[in-house]
């Protein structure tokens, strides 16, 4: 028996999310009194694989095959299922990101294992296996019982406080059976030098109150200063002021940074749904009755165009 966790790497280096996942998986393994097995797909060196042991992985299974160079949902699902079976996995943990959303549903069907999508806490009980997840885009939560023998959970990003717990895991190279892949990837554009919105610990976000697309300099400057990612509200991306990847809210990205700074965003219910999991929210808006202030921890009633330069200066002063 085991808890299996699927880790992702970026050019051979694990993402922070992978450590969150392993740490989370190890806590569930504790609840089930079993061991944590981490699966890595791709070309990852032994030294890097070992870092998963810092977060209590008992064993690491590494699968490296040229056919897995690009994400083919069927092939990846099949590899995870083969390893899950081999390791007698009772629970499989995957990230609730683009890759996880592509794989977890397929795996659920392949293994006839109930899916708990987007969990942010440990299960409240393992018998019955009960998970806690957002519903109605964060306007409420639900306790969901997974009835199948094997369970699949996807963990919401930046939702679980991971901790170091060093172990010395054995590393096993596993030759998975891989059929011909049906997905052909012709061109990859990677964002470089930019902090990804879903990974960011701090996010600076602008709304219609910024007035025009050429007014984004203070948002970008503040973001750069804080090591933050930039985001925007739906009207801003609909107007084409900012790319759709930056849209946070119910139909855009759901994020949970430590700090979310909302400049010129009134806080429509759909926007709040996407950002309400942020640990601390700062709102700057001219309208003192704007709903964003109900969601915020700290608020300033004022014009973001005037407040942001002072904000930037004040941050420079403490750095």
């Amino acid at each position: 028996m085991s808890v299996l966790v699927f880790t992702e790497n970026w050019d051979g280096k694990f993402k922070k999310m992978s450590f969150e996942l392993v740490s989370y998986a190890s806590k569930i393994a504790e609840m089930l009194n079993t061991q944590t097995v981490a699966l890595s797909i791709g070309d990852v060196q032994e030294d890097e694989l070992k870092t998963l042991g810092n977060y209590a992985a008992d064993k690491i299974v590494s699968v490296n095959n040229d056919k897995l160079k690009n994400l083919d949902n069927q092939a990846y699902t099949s590899v995870i299922a083969q390893v899950a079976e081999k390791e007698g996995a009772k629970v499989v943990i995957i990230a609730q990101n683009n890759m996880g959303k592509a794989l977890a549903p397929r795996l659920s069907v392949k293994m006839k294992a109930g899916l708990g999508a987007g969990v942010s806490k440990l299960p409240s009980s393992v018998e019955p296996f009960t998970i806690f997840k957002k519903v109605y885009s964060g306007k409420a939560y639900s306790n969901v019982v997974i009835k199948s023998d094997v369970k699949i959970l996807t963990l919401a990003q930046n939702s679980f406080e991971f901790e170091e717990n060093k172990k010395s895991p054995a590393i096993e190279n596993f030759e998975a059976t891989i059929e011909d892949v049906k997905t052909n990837v012709s061109n990859v554009q990677k964002q470089t030098g930019k902090i990804l919105l879903n990974d960011a610990e701090i996010v600076v976000s602008g709304g219609r109150g910024m007035k025009a697309s050429d007014q984004w300099a203070p948002i970008e400057e503040l973001a750069e200063l804080l090591g933050a990612a930039t985001a925007c509200s739906r009207p801003v991306s609909d107007e084409g002021w900012r790319p759709h990847e930056e849209h946070t809210g119910q139909t855009g990205k759901n994020i949970a940074p430590n700090l979310y700074i909302a400049a010129g965003i009134s806080g429509a219910i759909q926007h709040l749904a996407g950002i309400s999991s942020s640990k601390c929210i700062v709102a700057i808006n001219t309208d003192k009755d704007a709903p964003i202030f109900e969601a915020a921890d700290y608020g300033i009633v004022g014009d973001a165009a005037k407040v942001l330069p002072d904000f930037i200066q004040a941050v420079k002063d403490i750095k």
Binding site: G114, T130, Y141, S142, K147
Partner: peptide, 10 residues
Amino acid sequence: LTEIANFEMP
């Protein structure tokens, strides 16, 4: 394979 036990408000 799953069943909602109940809902909670934030």
